[in-house]
Design a protein around this nucleic acid. Structure first.
Length: 793
DNA sequence: AACTTTGCTATTTTT
DNA sequence: TAGCAAAGTT
């Protein structure tokens, strides 16, 4: 009975789940669910699918559900299987990229791709671009590979091919030309990058009426998670597939599909990678959805929620939403003003210790920061205090060099024309193929417009024989593994490529060898658990009639999987460790206690965001996301001085602190509230002079160790030294020597520029200058003999 | 081909 | 500061 499905929903969730997918005229009716943080959005989305299926409004075959991350897709399938006795594996539930890959595998011919096409991840794409620029003899100073990569990705995300770009100047014209050359190179090699997966499948649907109609008629219900994160191309894809793109309604007259979009405009924090909240407003206008707001929050206590609501109210152009809770006010939000980043870290340690001894699990404590660079000092302090911790982010399994090498060999078995893979391993492990030989193949390949692999056979002499050996090696591995299972193939390749041997002989190669062994396990697990078809085309429902559907080899499916799901990026459960991560990676997570650190102007909001269009509002949303991660306790901290890029910086407290409701706050350092403009002692609100800060830094550096190794978890282990005598001496030389009427960090007032804080001092006597960070006018150097500067006491 | 030195840069990240 | 990538040395 479907009433079971709805039993545990609140009224607004129930309303969202059961919105009629058809209007009074019998046409598809779309919906937009504005789901606040912690309002049960995933539950609503999943229950919606279950409800549609259970009430017979659609069969599992007719559902398409899109998410942004594999984790979200997986969770949806797990929850769905728990609600309904159906096999979710064959359902079209996945990421945009995963589903597009599936589509392109099934219709590779119509999409103009070889059946063995490979997927380039961001690293691969960059090396492909570097190779392209070298081949074309383009000055990579003038056209930096990274910039071209960004240029191409963003053009594709807007749905634009090179020829469709408006070129304003010579530079743009050249970039567009390089974009076109890049696409041609990918096409020749049989590879597609991430954005290409989307653009190519969009074009496939757009230009092939039979295929478009087939999928339009099939997917009568399309559901999208995190709708605020969609980019222009994803939105266009959605309009096309659902029949809302204004093109003639499909042949059978079946009309449009019902789209069920769930999102939160206040949590849109990915504009920098092409996401456009504007899509929510466009969707409102173009799909005429029924709207439901989920404002009941099940996560945070009252003061925390009030803080979040109060802050986000400073943004304009919101769709409008206010979270509420039944949980009661709970505790006040604590604010700590530290004299230095070291002091901030030391305070974190004390608070964490107190929380842990009060019975809170370490996994329930999150330390959040705006940028990764901030984690170092916190890790250092945690390590010294012997508190277990885990850092989110960093290299993932399939991104590790040794794994990418092994995958490159495997890819060459599938598709020898993949020049990116060829270049990666042609001389790794080294086999006497030097720069000369490689140049020779590249020339030959260019002359004959063929792949490096094919060009090898046209070479003779030294280069020819060395490269011939490599080609024979790859051919041999392909032949020898023809009838092997996937794990057997992987094992054969890591052995016979010489990778294992290479790393065994390397001093610190043991971890890499273990990772390579782990790759065999991953292949075994892939075959067993995933049925190898999840992200590829292989998993079709019985009786599914998809034109041109093909079986994909386990190897091809595994390679897709490796590209599309780079592996775990997050701390694993089980170990009771404090969780460290950026605010971005905290999205979607929740913790009993949350510390938001580094709340300083320039850091959070980040200085680079100030000049970006709507940058400040995005930073505020980021802060909103950070706050709403906390269930019971929230701590906010900022420091007066912080080491950044090798320099001590003096930042103002974040403006966001001033946007919080005073009634919900509790200052742990009483004067901090007024510290910004020098309440208390001579502008040094917590009683530290710059020299104090300096001394403290040296002290804390001198007596402990820190391992900055690559492992994600760092238990007590062999460590390296930080803060050598040499560094300390150099730093000692840097304090200003002159007699100044001000000290660094002091608050001052200027008749014209207003209030500011001294950030640097130099010169002597008549030449003495002070650098001042003004509240309104930014950073300025002032000649002390001329400027009318007054100390604020 | 392994090693060292220099040079550059420094939000946020998934696929 | 430090971390990586490219260029230079043995």
């Amino acid at each position: 009975m479907y009433t079971d499905l709805l039993a545990n929903l609140n009224p607004e969730q129930g309303e969202a789940v059961t919105l009629p997918p058809v209007n009074e005229h019998g046409q598809a009716q779309s919906a937009l669910i504005l789901a606040g943080a912690g309002s049960g959005k995933t539950r609503v989305l999943t229950t919606r699918i279950a409800w549609l299926i259970q009430t017979g409004q659609v069969s599992p075959i007719g559902v398409l559900a899109v998410t942004f991350t594999n984790k979200a897709a997986k969770e949806m399938m797990v929850r769905l299987s728990a609600m309904l006795p159906i096999n979710t594996r064959g359902m079209w539930i996945g990421t945009f990229h995963g589903l597009c890959n599936r589509l392109l595998r099934a219709h590779h011919k119509e999409a103009g791709l070889p059946s063995t096409f490979q997927i380039l991840d961001t690293q691969d794409q960059l090396s492909a671009i570097k190779r392209l620029l070298k081949g074309l003899k383009v000055d990579d100073e003038k056209y930096p590979p990274k910039q071209l990569q960004y240029f191409i990705a963003h053009a594709k995300e807007r749905g634009q091919r090179a020829r469709e770009l408006a070129v304003g100047d010579d530079f743009q014209a050249k970039m567009a030309q390089l974009y076109e050359a890049y696409d041609a190179q990918c096409q020749r090699e049989g590879v597609v990058d991430f954005a290409e997966l989307l653009l190519r499948s969009y074009e496939l649907l757009k230009h092939n009426e039979a295929i478009r109609t087939h999928y339009q008629e099939r997917f009568r219900h399309i559901l999208i998670d995190e709708f605020q994160d969609t980019n222009a191309l994803q939105y266009a894809w959605l309009k096309l597939l659902s029949g809302h793109d204004g093109s003639p309604v499909n042949v059978s007259g079946a009309g449009t599909s019902a789209v069920f979009a769930v999102g939160d405009d206040d949590q849109s924090i990915y504009a920098f990678r092409g996401a456009d909240v504007e899509n929510m407003r466009l969707y409102e206008k173009q799909f005429h959805p029924l709207m439901v707001k989920l404002e009941q929050n099940y996560r945070s206590h009252g003061h925390i929620l009030d803080t979040a609501n109060h802050l986000i109210a400073n943004n304009s152009e919101r769709l409008g939403k206010n979270l509420r809770t039944d949980a009661g006010h709970g505790e006040l939000v604590r604010i700590y003003d530290a004299p230095s980043d070291h002091a901030e870290a030391a305070w974190l340690i004390e608070e964490i210790k107190a929380l842990v001894s009060s019975g809170i699990k370490r996994t329930e404590i999150a330390l959040l920061y705006r940028s990764n660079a901030q984690s170092r000092i916190i890790e250092h302090a945690l390590f010294s205090a012997a508190i277990p911790y885990r850092v989110y982010g960093g290299l993932r399994f399939f991104e590790r060099a040794e794994i990418k090498h092994a995958l490159a060999y495997l890819r060459l078995l599938e598709n020898p024309n993949d020049d990116t893979s060829f270049s990666r391993v042609v001389n790794f492990p080294t086999r006497g193929i030097g720069a000369r030989s490689i140049e020779a193949v590249q020339d030959a390949a260019r002359a004959q417009q063929c792949s490096l692999y094919l060009a090898c056979s046209t070479l003779d002499g030294k280069a020819g024989s060395a490269l011939g050996g490599f080609v024979r090696l790859v051919d041999h591995m392909r032949e020898a593994t023809r009838h092997n299972t996937l794990p057997e193939t992987v094992e054969f390749v890591i052995q016979h490529s010489g990778l294992i041997q290479h790393y065994l002989s390397e001093r610190e190669g043991q971890d890499r060898v273990e990772n390579l062994q782990e790759l065999i396990n991953a292949a075994t697990a892939f075959i067993a658990e995933e049925g190898y078809g999840q992200d590829a085309a292989a998993a079709m429902l019985p009786g599914e009639n998809s034109p041109g559907a093909v079986e994909v080899s386990p190897l091809a499916a595994f390679l897709s999987h490796a590209s599309l799901e780079a592996g775990d990026n997050q701390a694993q459960a089980g170990q009771d460790a404090v969780q460290l991560m950026t605010v971005h990676s905290a999205k979607g997570l929740e913790f009993t206690s949350v510390f938001i650190t580094g709340l300083e102007e320039g850091l959070f909001p980040h200085e680079n965001s100030i000049n970006e269009l709507n940058g400040l509002e995005e930073e505020r949303r980021l802060m909103y996301v950070a706050i709403t991660r906390a269930k019971e306790r929230l701590y906010l901290s900022h420091t007066q001085s912080r080491m950044l890029h090798g320099q001590v910086r003096y930042n103002m407290p974040s403006r966001f602190l001033e946007e919080l409701p005073t009634d919900s706050l509790k200052w742990l350092t009483p004067k901090a509230k007024d510290a910004r403009w020098g309440g208390g002692n001579s502008g040094r609100s917590s009683g530290s002079t710059w020299q104090d800060v300096y001394t403290r830094q040296r002290e804390s550096e001198s007596n402990d160790f820190f391992d900055s190794g690559s492992e994600r978890e760092r238990p007590a282990k062999q460590l390296g030294r930080v803060g050598s005598a040499a560094t300390s001496v150099r730093r000692m030389a840097s304090p200003p020597r002159g007699n100044y009427p001000f000290t660094i960090g002091q608050n001052v007032f200027h008749t014209k520029f207003g209030e500011g804080r001294v950030t640097s001092l130099e010169g002597n006597d008549a030449d003495a200058r002070a650098q001042v960070n003004f509240k309104r006018h930014g950073v300025k150097w002032l000649q002390l003999s001329i400027a009318k500067l007054a100390a604020v006491d």
